[in-house]
């Protein structure tokens, strides 16, 4: 069997690469403006890939396949290349996440200080395992490598906030507070 690919097949592949199967896959003017702002910091358009993913994720919460195609199109890079970048970073979400993403530090110092026990507690209280989101859409639990706060272990990061010297009691307090916060917000 010949290993060469027929010319018309290549054409189809190329079209798919640059012109994804379309409708609903475009960036908003605001997203484009936010990405444009980053271009001046780098030598070429490709270099903005991560920044573009972050900017759009800020607007949409996560990067769906459609979103990925839209960004790739805008930067004129292949979706495959952009996917290879999106998937190597833990802060880029390729699946929907909850409003509060809990990054529980699982590295050596936090392990010595009891992060496994904390994790079991969190899993019991929230009813989810790492990588899952609670049915109410509030919490996502993720394990993270060292957060660089080892003298205050065990620690976790939620959004941009560090939670230090964690304990089961402090976790309960945190969960209650966040639940209340989101209940108040949806009541408003």
């Amino acid at each position: 069997m010949s290993s060469t690919i027929a010319a018309d097949t290549i054409e189809v592949m190329e079209q798919q690469d640059t012109d994804p199967r379309s409708a609903g896959r475009s960036l908003t003017a605001e997203e484009k403006r936010d990405i444009d702002r980053e271009f001046s910091h780098y030598e070429d358009r490709d270099s903005v890939a991560l920044e573009a993913l972050r900017v759009v994720q800020k607007h949409r919460g996560w990067i769906s396949d459609d979103t990925l195609y839209a960004i790739a199109d805008y930067l004129a890079v292949s979706p495959t290349q952009l996917e290879s970048i999106a998937t190597c970073y833990q802060l880029i979400f390729r699946q929907p996440v909850g409003k509060e993403v809990i990054f529980l530090c699982k590295s050596s110092s936090c392990w010595i200080m009891g992060c496994e026990k904390l994790q079991r507690h969190l899993e019991e209280q929230l009813g989810i395992r790492p990588g899952q989101t609670t049915p109410d859409g509030i919490f996502t639990l993720l394990e993270t490598p060292c957060l660089g706060d080892c003298d205050k272990a065990p620690v976790m990061m939620v959004g941009e906030e560090m939670h230090r010297h964690m304990s089961a009691d402090k976790l309960d307090e945190f969960i209650l507070e966040k639940k209340k916060h989101h209940a108040d917000q949806s009541a408003d």
């Binding site: 590295s107 110092s109 060292c146 660089g148 706060d149």
Partner: peptide, 11 residues
């Protein structure tokens, strides 16, 4: 890019 387990000096 301080990410070495147990390292918290650059922060």
């Amino acid at each position: 890019d301080e990410m070495e387990p147990g390292t918290f000096k650059d922060r």
